[in-house]
């Protein structure tokens, strides 16, 4: 634009940079305001979030490393709780991942009546109280529920056992994968998949070779959030598990039981495992957000290039 050697229109030009500088000044608050607000915001985050996290680790390690190790590895019931959580969470995450992929395929790739309604219905478990979620499982699978007596008669134990804990966990973590995948797949568009199908790929090949590699970071993002919630779920599992020590206590339930038994140090030691999980989740989240942004930016770039070069 400015490559023309012709005489420049003098009056308009110099005004421009000044206006830009003016905009910056117009947006800038006086330094004392800036410092005061920044300090206040840091105080909020510090008191609400940083101090509690520091306190967990301080309480957990207060008795020394040996006591910490004993609290976790020396207690059979705590180990059973860890084992149960490591069994339940992967199953819940796996079934919700399959659901998320199916839902994203149906919702982001096809138009059908009730599509918007279905999308908001997927978020429903987020607005139901975990306790109510647990109770609704009891109303179906418990002895007072509609299916309970029949299940018992056929030797199925759902409530107060691992299957009930898995189902309750799956209920509360249902939306995580789907709600990450649906917008990702919508943003990516369906051109590549249509190309694959028209070149003779089967539906399954298209999904595995085209869709999955395209959405992998979005999928992983949903997975780690789903997993964090699955391992940390309390209310729903509290209701359906029956809290049988050493059998149906998950890690969060174990934290509560130790707290009720006034074994505070051990309670914090076990809680520190979950806090570590949360911190690892946050780190992975930051990493994946970056990847995901690039994934979508790449898709957008290919999209516009495709339009420029026919």
């Amino acid at each position: 634009m400015s490559s023309a050697p012709a005489p420049r229109p003098l009056p308009a030009r110099p005004a421009r940079p000044k206006a830009d500088g003016g905009a910056r000044i117009a947006r800038e608050d006086p330094a004392p305001v800036r410092w005061a607000l920044t300090a206040a915001a840091l105080l909020v985050i510090g008191v609400l979030i940083v101090v509690p996290v520091a306190n967990v680790f301080w309480q957990a390690f207060r008795g020394g490393l040996a006591a910490y190790g004993r609290a976790i590895f020396g207690d059979a019931d705590t180990l059973a709780a860890i084992r149960l959580t490591l069994t339940v969470a992967p199953i819940a995450v796996a079934v919700n991942t399959v659901f998320g992929l199916a839902a994203a395929w149906a919702i982001a790739r096809f138009r059908f009546p009730g599509r918007t309604f279905l999308t908001s219905l997927i978020d429903l478990p987020f607005s139901v109280s975990p306790v109510v979620a647990g109770l609704s499982m009891m109303m179906l699978f418990g002895m007072q529920g509609y299916l309970g007596p029949w299940l018992r008669a056929h030797g199925w134990k759902i409530v107060f056992a691992t299957p009930g804990i898995v189902i309750a966990t799956a209920f509360v973590t249902l939306p995580f994968v789907a709600r990450e995948l649906i917008p990702t797949m919508e943003a990516l568009g369906d051109e590549e998949e249509i190309a694959a199908v028209s070149l003779g790929a089967s539906g399954w090949q298209t999904f595995r070779r085209v869709t999955l590699p395209n959405v992998k970071w979005g999928l992983l993002y949903g997975l780690i959030l789903c997993n964090a919630r699955a391992m940390g779920e309390f209310g729903a599992v509290y209701v359906v598990s029956g809290r049988i020590t050493g059998q149906t206590d998950t890690i969060p339930l174990r934290v509560e039981k130790l707290f009720q038994e006034y074994r505070t140090a051990e309670s914090f030691a076990v809680a520190s495992l979950l806090t570590l999980l949360a911190l690892v989740t946050l780190v992975l989240k930051v990493f994946l957000e970056e990847r995901r942004r690039r994934e979508l930016a790449e898709a957008a770039r290919l999209d516009t290039e495709g339009e420029v070069a026919p």
Partner: peptide, 9 residues
Amino acid sequence: LPFALPTAV
């Protein structure tokens, strides 16, 4: 963090 930290903790 509050999204990721289990409520019991």
